[in-house]
Design a binder for these strands. Sequence first.
DNA 1: GTCTATAGGGGGATAGAC
DNA 2: GTCTATCCCCCTATAGAC
Lengths: 231, 231
Amino acid sequence: MAGPDTKTTILDAAEALFAEQGYDAASLRELTRRAGVNLAAVNYHFGGKEKLAMAVLARTIAPINAERARRLEALPVRATTADVVRAFVEPAFPTNANCTAGHIAPARDFCRMFGRLMVDQPPFLRLFLAEQFRDLGLRFEARLRQSLPRHDAATVWWRMHFLAGAMAHTLHSADGLAHLTAGLCDATDVDAVVEQLVAFAAAGISAPPLPAAKKRRAAAPATERRARSRR
Amino acid sequence: MAGPDTKTTILDAAEALFAEQGYDAASLRELTRRAGVNLAAVNYHFGGKEKLAMAVLARTIAPINAERARRLEALPVRATTADVVRAFVEPAFPTNANCTAGHIAPARDFCRMFGRLMVDQPPFLRLFLAEQFRDLGLRFEARLRQSLPRHDAATVWWRMHFLAGAMAHTLHSADGLAHLTAGLCDATDVDAVVEQLVAFAAAGISAPPLPAAKKRRAAAPATERRARSRR
DNA sequence: GTCTATAGGGGGATAGAC
DNA sequence: GTCTATCCCCCTATAGAC
């Protein structure tokens, strides 16, 4: 009998089902059927569907954020932007190193679940995730600005936002890209994906800040574009 | 009576409701209640909830993709990466120019709807969106590689994928960032947001391709790695 | 702790009158 | 084209036996 306890069994099944279908479309009936536990067990152990979703997320987020904080602390004073980005991105992916180091369970489906629920928008999930990330976000913003002294805060926040979107999309549907490109892009090589994302985001965040947008006029004279901009 | 026909009324209400709640959570009952039309009208005019969602998306995507194709054609031979990125990004946002040019109706809520349904994952939506984007994706990939002759195809596809994630996240929840930063980032200045996204993505896509990753050291002392940076 | 049974409330779709 | 009424499905949550 390979038997983790009921609570863990439910968490594992919820992770897989939320990954596939998102919060709203996933039903407790299918979940408990797959897990081989009774329907009522979810309410007994977690107190409802919403609390189950938060428990699933917390189980994944807590060790990831702890690792992010640890790496952030460990960065040298003059760390590059790429170092800071890596400290944020790498702990969220099941790389070989993360799996052997143990702070991520390799077999689980947390990856797609995480990316999926990050963009799912039931109000309680928005609030829960915002709360989980607020402190860490502030610390990363500060670190990024250390490495990019000429960047203003708003620019750094916008670019962190872009990174979050790229990361969520990659966590959740990298296999979609593999399919679209007929295997040219290999989503199973997690280490390579992380390297790509870090390189992309570090370069994007490091891009020169926009000229204060007062009379912004985009750079190159393409055939015809940008009649003007206001403000 | 300022009266668009029933079909348009339903499309507008669906756009708003899908934007708020996503496909699964939105119900036809609430939708028809808000629109002030009868519940049965949805099935009469569209043939079901799935077909309604595709109609809502098609109404938004068709003019956006037409504009993208037009701008892509109009690019000079030696267009920069930023030009190509801009041709992809700008038509999807309700900038002042797009609204006055008329290919986007400014008052509508297509922005959040589009970003929301782009990451929603009912199978029929995945297929529908993939079909809508395949051709255009191929043309953008070709153009990007023209501007970046040293980039291999897989690298360009990965970075287009990151751009898609950043764009979807921005379309759907830019206001979340405005809230998180207490107004420091202004999501209502669409032109500025587009400039930020173009600058970020152009720099990210232009980053040097990774060294072939043959013997990338995936392992390293797991406890304390990455003391240094590569460049 | 675990199960069965059921309460109680949606949901999408459709038939048929108007 | 539009409306009412209804079918039949599935959902979450809970009460109460074991």
